[in-house]
């Protein structure tokens, strides 16, 4: 999870309170990645333990301002310049579902069709969210990423359908 580095990125713009970090994190990623305040403070204390951020004095309302350290800037720099590898991402349940359906010789076509319609509904919602005025540039990029992912899933489903329709093994099970 990139919460650590996300907080470091926000702190690289200047010192911030925990609550402020949460608000800005969500504003950057859209509602797509909700963060609770507990996660923010847990992450901040770990960052502090690792010497990547430093807390300031408590103000009269008991709030603490955090600043990024030199080591924190180096970690942010390292994160930004390192490509994300596939193995860092969670496994895809849909891929496993279809693989298992094929293995168990279930009828895969209705699975594909149901998924395609469901994913299209998701895509429609994403486009609706994009059309709403007032989304910031960062939020739009996050939405766009989800649109491309849903689009890729649709193309993959089309591919699966074409391949499975052509394969005699799956036609047998459908007959």
């Amino acid at each position: 999870m990139a919460i650590r580095q996300g907080l470091l990125a926000l702190l690289s713009m200047g010192p911030r309170y925990g609550y402020q970090l949460r608000t800005e994190f969500e504003a950057s990623t859209g509602a797509t990645w909700p963060l609770n305040i507990g996660q923010v403070y847990t992450t901040l204390s770990r960052l502090e333990r690792d010497g990547l951020v430093a807390p300031g004095e408590q103000d009269d309302q008991g709030r603490v301002v955090y600043s990024i350290t030199e080591a924190g800037r180096a970690e942010l720099e390292r994160w930004l310049s390192t490509p994300v590898t596939q193995s860092d991402r969670p496994r895809d349940e849909l891929v496993i579902k279809l693989a298992m359906a094929v293995t168990a010789r279930a009828d895969v076509r209705p699975v594909i069709q149901a998924q395609r319609t469901a994913t299209m509904r998701t895509l429609q919602e994403l486009v609706r969210a994009k059309r709403v005025n007032g989304a910031g540039a960062a939020q739009l990029l996050v939405l766009e990423s989800m649109i491309f992912q849903a689009e890729a899933e649709q193309r993959w489903l089309d591919h699966c359908e074409a391949v499975l329709t052509a394969s005699p093994q799956t036609q047998e099970t459908q007959a």
């Binding site: 149901a114 319609t117 994913t119 299209m120 509904r121 895509l123 429609q124 689009e151 193309r155």
Partner: peptide, 26 residues
């Protein structure tokens, strides 16, 4: 044939073998 554009529609209809196989407005 591009789902990203179809998603702008109020309703998406899927055709297969000349028949409506499904629709987002079931």
């Amino acid at each position: 044939h591009e789902s990203r554009y179809a998603a702008w529609a109020d309703r998406v209809v899927f055709l297969r073998d000349g028949m409506i196989a499904d629709s987002t407005d079931a």
